[in-house]
């Protein structure tokens, strides 16, 4: 887990730079709080755990004009056999239209296996999560209200098990790379 954490440590720096850049470029324009709460499913054609996993996530951030929002996303992904808490930095770029606006989104971060039981002989580690998506958002009562999206979610997680046959310091590691298609429905505040 330590290695994976290091691997993503450059990310906050990049995001800060982007935020500063956007902050400068939209200076004078309105900044407002943005929240998107989504539920959905994660599908795999060839799977470990369940072929259909459930996902919920909440994006909280700031929106610049109507074209871009950035923030932090916290969620829970239930793979049925593995439950992951992904904490990611997220960004959305919206192409504003009258009623239905297409948009693209990106989430990058780390999924934690906090819900999994840890013992001396068996424990889970989370891993890097990466989730690009595209979708549409609907206007209702004068502002964007609903969204649907389709995306790709890649989550890495490991299971370590002590191998008593091979000795006291032996263990098995199963490093899962879960490649899933994400279909989500959400509400925008």
């Amino acid at each position: 887990m330590r290695v994976s954490m290091l691997r993503i440590s450059g990310l906050p720096v990049i995001v800060t730079v982007i935020l500063l850049y956007v902050g400068v470029s939209v200076r004078g324009q309105s900044l407002r709080y943005a929240n998107e709460t989504e539920i959905g499913t994660l599908w795999s054609g060839a799977n470990f755990f369940s072929p259909v996993a459930l996902t919920v996530q909440s994006f909280n951030g700031v929106q610049f004009a109507r074209v871009m929002s950035m923030g932090l996303t916290v969620g829970v992904d239930e793979y049925f056999g593995l439950r992951i808490v992904p904490i990611t930095l997220g960004a959305r770029v919206i192409l504003p239209k009258k009623r239905v606006s297409p948009y693209v989104g990106m989430e990058v971060g780390y999924g934690f296996a906090w819900f999994e039981k840890r013992t001396d002989t068996q424990w889970h580690d989370g891993g890097v999560v990466f989730n690009p998506s595209m979708g549409l958002r609907w206007k209702a009562k004068g502002k964007d209200r609903y969204l649907v999206s389709i995306g790709y979610k890649r989550q890495v997680a490991s299971l370590h098990t002590a191998n008593t046959i091979l000795g006291p310091e032996a263990y098995n590691t199963e490093k899962y790379t879960l490649n899933r298609m994400a279909i989500r429905f959400g509400v925008v505040f």
Binding site: Y171, T173, K175, Y176, N179
Partner: peptide
């Protein structure tokens, strides 16, 4: 979209 697992024995 296919899940993958890498088994490692140490």
């Amino acid at each position: 979209c296919r899940d993958q697992v890498e088994h490692t024995v140490t």
